[in-house]
Design a protein around this nucleic acid. Structure first.
Lengths: 144, 144
DNA sequence: GACATTTCGGACAATCAGGTCCGTATTTTT
DNA sequence: AAAAATACGGACCTGATTGTCCGAAATGTC
């Protein structure tokens, strides 16, 4: 469904949103540790998110990545996914036909449309702040 | 969502089901042509489907791949997907956590569950025969 | 039996995704 | 000013995915 890079991005982004509520900035090392993701690779992913304007990065001692709650409420999951994987997963044709559309659909078009729409609605309707709430209550986890 | 191999598999399977209704057996060359898929690579994919028992292959002149309607009605899309990509896409965790479950969910678990269930229901509820009907009426297409 | 047609299967090549390493730039602390 | 902490970015490695090629095996036709 999503690439590994994208999965790491989501994990990291939710965690950063969580700590952003404590006005904390998170270092790469801490993020990688708490999400169980490979450090150097996660760095690349976080750079992509920062370049996409999804989160802020700061160099130097006490630097790291941060995302204040006000912004976390505005960042939808779809933005994270799009920044890493593009939007084919929730917009493209299930059979991979580049020209598939309602006028000239693939055989799977109608069946797949519902699934894709539900995925898109979910991604566009879920923000990082909301997801971080589940984490704080200890009802959800990022690592074994 | 699905790998290229899996997309080719679905396209080919639907086409073979379509021609199976005319008691026709399709050669690799014809399948690749009519689905716009690379020939040699499609051969590998079709072999996988044949080994998985999803369709029949016959060597020699007038050989090829076939799938009679009675069987096409029983082959669900989920079986094709599982044979090529495995079932992670409609069973696994959206964030890629291997231990994600209702007792210890990821932050996305509940949101994602609906989407995954809808995808799974669609794949398990759609058979190749049904998909081939759309093709025959000329309402759906496999190639530009 | 010879030949043509077709799938099968192994070897290989190319590209991409996942991941590491290390030096550089930036910022804070002392 | 020097040192330490941190993100940045490029080079590189590795394995998986995608894709090609070609000989072998099977089967139908003459």
């Amino acid at each position: 469904m999503f690439s590994r890079a994208c999965q790491y991005a989501i994990r990291a982004a939710v965690l950063i949103a969580l700590e952003g509520r404590n006005k904390r900035r998170m270092s790469l090392v801490e993020i990688a540790e708490r999400t169980g993701s490979p450090r150097a690779f996660t760095a690349k992913v976080l750079q992509q998110l920062a370049r996409a304007g999804i989160l802020e990065s700061t160099k130097g001692p006490n630097g790291g990545f941060d995302l204040p709650p006000a912004k976390a409420k505005k960042v939808k999951l779809s933005m994270v996914v799009k920044a890493i994987d593009g939007d084919q997963v929730y917009r493209g044709c299930g059979m991979g036909l580049p020209y598939c559309n309602p006028k000239k659909p693939c055989p799977l078009h109608d069946h797949f449309q519902e699934v894709r729409d539900e995925l898109r609605d979910m991604l566009e309707g879920t923000d990082l702040h909301t997801l971080s709430l589940g984490l704080e209550k200890g009802k959800a986890f990022l690592k074994r």
